[in-house]
Design a protein around this nucleic acid. Structure first.
Length: 935
RNA sequence: GGGCGGUUAGCUCAGUUGGUUAGAGCGCCUGCCUUACAAGCAGGAGGUCGCAGGUUCGAGUCCUGCACUGCCCACCA
């Protein structure tokens, strides 16, 4: 029994086996095509997971969608490169390792920079490897020969190159500015890394005495502790309440320092008291005001947000402790004028949740406007398209309101900034490699700046650095721009926007090999500097209660655990089937359970096929899965891969019977729909089409219809049926493969008995529609048959006919065509509805027995058994009501001249046809009610 | 303070350009171990599409307002 599959479907064993096979055989490794080879190319960069831990459900959704698209392209004949990698994730990873140290009672500073970094590398080896193992388990068909890590030497080299070039172009500058500072992480963070949270706070009013008078000026503040660093009070020049104080000085309470009263737009008359304290070292707005008025900057806190020596008596206190003390002291000395409830948006560190402190410090920045301009143009002009489209506007809004990007971090883990400070003259040298002497004074005492770069600086370069930049490589000529980026909304600004900015800036000179064909519809694209042509933004995976998954809430669903229980195929299918663009996914295990049942269904259908194949000694090779190199799947140069070709559809399928013509037609239509859906990232649509086709049409109807030919007939008839079955199954497996790669590979390999002409179904061609195989007449005939069979089944249950009993039926057909197609398929009806004989009656005679029908036929089961007449009457009445309602509606429209004049003819035609049907149905239902003697 | 999305069956969700009778899975009810599958088969019940207006021959679908809900962005003390 060579083709026998185990009786029960056990995904675990199958999946690990094929996952290993794909990797071991290097099936997805891509060698760069030589010049002159004209095949279409599809390139996708994996958004590199952080090396901070395990993959979560969001990764799995992301990778499932990418893998579906990637496998689909590969099967359509594209040279398909999917580049995998991981991100060093500077601050996040450093935090994880620090936490590990904290458990050992150690701090990173105890170890020193070098030793600490060694430990992080160990961590990286452990978790980076684990992430790749998990990806293999998901079936991600990446090119494992091209793995990258953002801190690899070649990528680090490119990072230095970019930094130096930007510096030389004047786009990177260094300076002392107010930045977002996390006192726990002890580093600057970018605006994007600050999350605002509304909290109930207070607005305090403080009175400052005016020097030389007994007057006071009252200011409002949410952060009284910063008053210790006040260097002015601002009022609005137009605010008449304070005109008499212009040029006067106020005495800063607690510090006994005289500060000027200045006029500045910073103060808005309608807010608070109209007067505002100015603290240039602790507030970005005040910082700007301070610059305008040449005010001193007095920093009163250290890097831990503890008060420093500038805070006088408050030295050493934590900022909140200091706040309490300041307020108490103000109160005691009579300077506290009031206290109001106030809601404020508190900035917190994205990583650790600590309240961010605006802090004056020396940092490196990217002058962003010139870069943003090109990135705006690339999207506005359509050189890059964003799907769903509403994200385009979000992207543009953000880009248009962008501020300079603080790229330096006071961390240890990351790309160290390629800048050196001269010990002697303090000159700063930015260079690609460590300089030996100071370019200014010649000193050899140089020390590299200790800061590292924001982790997004290096990941923003990946689309070209992974292809060998700054060298001009063949890889770049072939694979850049990448085709597509699939990512989560969360990192649209962090990552996507940065890649666009960097790509457009650094790849201006890029020359793409003109022989390389891209996906269809891109002929009009001119700007080859963009990092990708299209961005697909996918949803967030939430838990079953629609809550965002987070470790702190403890509602994180571990994909591997789900996979363990239901299999990767079922889990992937769940994510695909729920991924309607634009809406988040509430991950619901009952769905996964349902899709495991689907996989089981496929499994058993395959067992049924093999059972017959083996019994009939069906000869192999009659229906080989077409290879990509063969006419069907291969894409010719200049040809769009999705256009239909002569060999599309299913080759060598025999269409002697109605069910064969029907299923072939259905397969082709489903194929077309699936391809169309994938073209527009409508994963859920594609998945549901395949599901409905395989289960609802192929298994429920087709298999049942061909059973007797397989089992009860001999010779050619059975063999033809079996050949069709194998052929169809093969095609269905190819159609399904991108969604459920493992089970399809397992069955496909079994079909070819371990001797496939291709190494994998993943290298076979993806089905394409063949219009000649679409047969609408067969679909209509089949629909009548199905209606009839269902009608009889309903009647059997109404009459409580025992399941095994064959019953005779009385049939009345309304037109000759219906009669002919029913009688041609008499056997099928008898088998599927367990009918003994069919009597075709010339006229429909009244009798007190239930009947069913459509506008094409009426049917009655001949069986002596009392039925619940009242219940049947009730049902019929309800039905009559419904169709009469519809008829009334239908007539209202058909009698409406406006409708007839304006509605398209096919709609009017449809309604007319329906009207005829409804008249028949109403008439019949009424006579049935009469037959049964209902009131 | 700005912007975006959601509200459809008991639950979770589909429903592309407005067009004939609004769908699926799960759950529920009834009957079946029919030799591929009980993770299954056959049949069934269940919805005034959040509310109020409007546009239209025609609205779940478009417009306006409202309610509830979720998210993102934001250097006004």
């Amino acid at each position: 029994m060579p083709h026998e599959l185990p009786k029960s479907y056990e995904p675990g064993a199958i999946e690990t086996r094929w996952a290993e096979y794909w990797v071991y055989e290097k099936l997805f490794s891509v060698s760069t095509p030589p010049a002159g080879e004209a095949r279409p190319v599809f390139t996708l960069l994996l958004p590199p997971p952080n090396v901070t831990g395990r993959l979560h459900m969001g990764h799995m959704l992301n990778q499932t969608q990418m893998d579906i698209i990637v496998r689909w392209h590969r099967m359509r004949g594209f040279i398909t490169l999917w580049l995998p990698g991981t991100d060093h994730a500077g601050i996040a990873t450093q935090m994880m390792v620090e936490r590990q140290f904290a458990k050992e009672g150690k701090k990173r500073r105890d170890l020193g920079r070098e030793k600490f970094i060694e430990r992080v590398w160990e961590w990286k080896k452990l978790y980076g490897g684990a992430i790749f193992d998990q990806m293999k388990r998901l079936g991600a068909s990446v090119d494992w020969d091209r793995e990258y890590f953002t801190m690899d030497e070649n990528l680090s080299h490119a990072v230095r190159e970019v930094f130096v070039r930007l510096y030389e172009e004047g786009l990177i500058y260094r300076g002392k500015y107010i930045v977002n500072w996390c006192p726990r992480c002890e580093t600057a963070i970018s605006d994007l890394e600050v999350k605002h949270e509304e909290v109930a706070g207070k607005l305090w009013e403080i009175r400052y005495p005016i020097v030389g008078t007994d007057e006071f000026i009252t200011v409002a503040t949410t952060r009284p502790e910063t008053m210790l660093g006040d260097t002015a009070i601002a009022v609005n020049a137009k605010d008449e309440r304070y005109t008499h104080l212009h040029g006067k000085k106020a005495l800063l309470p607690l510090m006994h320092r005289e500060i000027p009263i200045i006029t500045d737009e910073l103060a808005q008359p309608e807010f608070g008291t109209g007067a505002v304290k100015v603290t240039p070292a602790h507030d970005p707005n005040d910082f700007q005001a301070g610059k305008r008025h040449n005010l001193p900057q007095i920093d009163v806190m250290d890097e831990h947000a503890h008060m420093n020596q500038n805070a006088g008596a408050y030295l050493g206190l934590d900022r909140y402790e200091a706040r309490k003390r300041v307020l108490a002291d103000l109160q005691e000395q009579g300077f506290l004028a009031g206290e109001k409830d106030y809601t404020l948006a508190l900035g917190k560190c994205d990583r650790c949740g600590t309240v961010v402190e605006p802090r004056l410090s020396e940092q490196w920045f990217i002058k962003i406007k010139p870069l943003a301009q090109k990135a705006i143009e690339a999207v506005e002009s359509g050189e890059i398209t964003i799907v769903p489209e509403n994200y385009k506007q979000i992207y543009l809004n953000w880009m248009n309101n962008i501020y300079d990007w603080c790229i330096s971090r006071q961390l240890w883990w990351g790309h160290r900034i390629p800048a050196w400070t001269c010990d002697n003259c303090k000159h700063v040298i930015v260079a690609r490699e460590a300089p030996l002497t100071c370019t200014k004074c010649g000193s050899t005492k140089l020390e590299q700046v200790s800061d590292v770069l924001d982790t997004w600086f290096s990941s923003g370069l990946l689309p070209f650095t992974t292809l060998g930049w700054p060298e001009k490589t063949r890889d770049q000529a072939v694979f850049y721009p990448t085709t597509l980026l699939i990512t989560a909304y969360e990192i649209l600004f962090f990552w996507v926007a940065r890649m666009i900015m960097f790509g457009c800036h650094f790849m201006q000179e890029h020359e793409q090999d003109p022989a390389i064909k891209r996906a269809s519809g891109w002929a009009d694209k001119k700007n080859d500097s963009v990092p990708f042509r299209q961005v697909y933004i996918h949803a967030l995976v939430r838990d079953a209660e629609r809550q965002k998954m987070s470790k702190t809430k403890g509602n994180v669903v571990d994909p591997l655990e789900v996979i363990e229980r239901f299999g990767t195929d079922a889990t992937r299918f769940t994510l695909a089937a729920m991924a309607a663009p634009g809406t988040d996914i509430a991950f619901n295990e009952s769905r996964t359970e349902g899709y495991r049942a689907f996989a089981n269904k496929i499994w058993n259908a395959a067992r049924f096929m093999f059972m017959n194949v083996d019994r009939l000694g069906f000869a192999w090779g009659q229906s080989p899965s077409p290879a990509l190199s063969e006419a069907e799947g291969a894409v010719q140069p200049g040809q769009s891969p999705d256009s239909s070709r002569p060999a599309a559809g299913i080759v060598g399928f025999h269409t002697a019977t109605l069910e064969d013509r029907w299923i072939l037609s259905r397969f082709n239509r489903v194929t077309e729909e699936v391809n169309d859906s994938l073209e527009t990232y409508r994963f859920h649509e594609a998945a549901n089409r395949i599901y409905d086709f395989f289960w609802g049409e192929f298994c429920d109807w087709y298999l049942e219809l061909i059973k007797h030919r397989l089992i009860s007939t001999v010779g050619d008839e059975a063999r033809t049926a079996c050949g069709n079955l194998v052929n169809l199954f093969d095609a269905a497996l190819r159609l399904l493969h991108p969604f459920m790669p493992f089970i399809t590979e397992e069955i496909w390999q079994a079909i070819y008995d371990g001797k496939p002409h291709l190494q994998s179904v993943a290298l076979a061609s993806y089905p394409q529609v063949n219009e000649n195989q679409v047969d609408l007449a067969a679909e209509t005939q089949m629909a009548v048959l199905q209606d009839l069979i269902v009608s009889v089944r309903q009647l059997r249950l109404d009459l409580k006919v025992e399941a095994r009993v064959k019953v005779p039926i009385e049939l009345f057909v309304h037109d000759a065509g219906t009669g002919i197609s029913i009688m041609q398929n008499e056997d099928a009806i008898k088998r599927l509805a367990n009918v003994g004989s069919i009597t075709n009656v010339e006229e429909w005679r009244a009798r007190q027995a239930p009947s069913r029908g459509t506008s094409r036929f009426d049917v009655r089961v001949v069986y002596e058994r009392k039925i619940d007449v009242a219940a049947e009457c009730e049902r019929l009445k309800k039905e009559l009501e419904k169709i009469e309602r519809e008829f009334a509606n239908n007539q209202r429209q058909l009698n409406n001249e406006q409708f007839l004049a304006k509605a398209p003819s096919n709609v009017v035609e449809g309604l007319r046809r329906r009207a005829e049907e409804l008249i028949v149905l109403i008439d019949k239902t009424k006579s049935k009610l009469h037959e049964l003697g209902c009131k």
